[in-house]
């Protein structure tokens, strides 16, 4: 990654790689200062939520509506009228993947809107790492994901979700979905910085999200799908996360799907995070 994003301390001692724009620029930002900047900016994002509590509607209402809708619309068809409880156990762990995806999408539109404002110019003329603005936003958004996931699980428990593994399995599933959700944010931050309008971000996001969400094991077992679709769902990271969360909460194989989820998270982050930071730095 380039020199401005000194998130990790060792990078400061390393000789600076030659850059087109920055030559003999030795005013590096130390790790502690960087964390302080991220903290101050995360506080800003939290205060924004406080000033505009409606912005939490998606994180609070989405899990409630999704669970009710899918359990009562599809539950009977999937497992028979009297066995909706079984579908709750199938669906709710899978929906954890949906929470991350939908919150991450909101980050894209938020970034697009936020970065048009004059205050971004101020941040970019200040002696802070430009990545800290993005990372602070992510920290707060991961917090929102946690809120959405918690509400999702509470809804699940009300409708009969039972944890047949242990509390650590449950925490593991939550952690895994947050890691994956955070990596997705980089994609949407990149989209938000690239697209001109919020509407464009939403349009592109919907186009990509619909097939990914429904062409997965979140809502229905892939064994009921035709072969070509099964091979798609096998590689769909949302399936991997849904399967891993299911295994961690209701028991079953975890290793393969969890590793695939982590691999997808790492891959997505490695590719899109540097692009997003570079885009933010250059955006005028």
């Amino acid at each position: 990654m380039s020199a401005t994003t000194t998130v990790n301390a060792p990078a400061q001692q390393a000789p600076s790689p030659p850059r087109a724009a920055v030559g003999s620029d030795d005013a590096r930002i130390g790790l502690r200062a960087n964390l302080r900047h991220i903290g101050a900016l995360a506080r800003r994002n939290m205060l924004q939520i406080k000033a505009d509590p409606e912005s939490m509607f998606d994180a609070v209402l989405m899990p409630i509506i999704f669970v009710l809708l899918f359990v009562y619309v599809f539950g009977g068809a999937m497992f028979g009228d009297g066995n909706r409880g079984q579908y709750v156990n199938y669906l709710v762990p899978g929906l954890m993947a949906m929470m991350g995806l939908n919150i991450a999408m909101a980050v894209g539109t938020g970034v697009n809107d936020d970065f048009k404002k004059g205050v971004m110019d101020r941040f970019r003329t200040m002696p802070i790492a430009r990545s800290s603005v993005l990372i602070a936003k992510m920290v707060v958004e991961v917090g929102r994901m946690l809120v959405a996931t918690t509400i999702l699980l509470i809804m699940g428990f009300i409708l009969g979700l039972s944890v047949s593994t242990s509390v650590f399995g449950l925490l593991g599933a939550i952690g895994l979905s947050l890691v994956f959700g955070a990596s997705l944010m980089w994609i949407f931050i990149l989209l938000g910085l690239t697209m001109k309008t919020v509407q464009a971000v939403q349009g592109v996001a919907m186009l990509v999200l619909m097939p990914l969400q429904f062409g997965s094991s979140i809502f229905a077992k892939p064994t009921t799908m035709p072969g070509w679709l099964q091979s798609f769902t096998d590689y769909n990271p949302l399936s991997n996360l849904a399967d891993a969360a299911r295994g961690l909460i209701t028991g079953g194989p975890v290793a393969h799907s969890a590793l695939m989820t982590l691999a997808w998270s790492a891959g997505i982050t490695l590719v899109t995070a540097p692009l997003a930071v570079a885009k933010f730095r250059k955006r005028t």
Binding site: V22, G23, S24, D25, A27, R28, T125, P127
Partner: peptide, 11 residues
């Protein structure tokens, strides 16, 4: 162009 970070401390 060459020293943007020092410069940002002074403006």
């Amino acid at each position: 162009v060459r020293q943007p970070r020092q410069l940002r401390r002074t403006i």
